[in-house]
Write a protein that binds this DNA or RNA. Structure first.
Lengths: 112, 112
DNA sequence: TCTATATTTACCCTTATGGATAACAATAGC
DNA sequence: GCTATTGTTATCCATAAGGGTAAATATAGA
């Protein structure tokens, strides 16, 4: 993925908020309705819905409305764009900095 | 790292801009002065310096001024916070979604 | 010392973001 | 059919973000 990518903009911006990160974490346990997701937060529903829309626009979650209830679900595939970008960064460091090899190994070690 | 982390806020926000991502990419080739970094962009220096400060505040780069010239250098260690966060996300998916095992393997495969 | 270079400071402007409220659907259940 | 529940729409507000210009600073070099 090119650095000049509106997709990366929206994904990273979506990550840059603790409420949204907490929602993503919660959705890791499985799908949930908007009000269930909102419950832990001291925030009115309309602004909370904006966070949901931000996550959806970034492609990090999908939502579907059935009856009154909108159910949200994690879309882990989208994380691949971030993984790819980070991977490219690491590869570039490796090609330049010899002394960073150790760091690279440490980072990879954590993935295991 | 906790989801409720101002550090992650600043790091992800720093990533959420194509100019800043391009600067990071460039710094992967080695240290550079502010004006050298700014050269490829159709942007005045003062706003460009804001990007530099954003990256520095996030801890993604370090800068040092010697004489007239401020030299910027990548600080790859800081990327570990992001790696850790992504790793935690993946682990949570794995504990819940059986069918995501395949995706996990694909993501790890890309790291090699 | 004069001058060109490399920022830096001080403002200004427009748009985006994160929050709030109030009022409006739309559907589930009795 | 009423009523409570679950979103949604419409505004509004304050602050932050990304951009600009003009002028100041500081040092390198002739």
């Amino acid at each position: 993925m090119d650095n000049n990518s509106p997709e990366l903009d929206t994904i990273f911006l979506a990550f840059a908020d603790s409420t949204r990160r907490a929602v993503l974490r919660r959705l890791g346990d499985g799908p949930a309705s908007v009000s269930d997701l909102a419950a832990p937060f001291d925030m009115a529903l309309p602004p909370f819905m904006k966070h949901i829309r931000t996550l959806e626009n970034a492609g990090l979650i999908t939502t579907e409305k059935v009856g009154r209830v909108r159910t949200c679900e994690l879309n882990p595939e989208k994380y691949a764009a971030v993984e790819d970008w980070l991977k490219e960064q690491r590869q570039q460091w490796a090609s330049r900095y010899r002394k960073l090899d150790q760091l690279l190994k440490q980072l990879k070690e954590k993935d295991k």
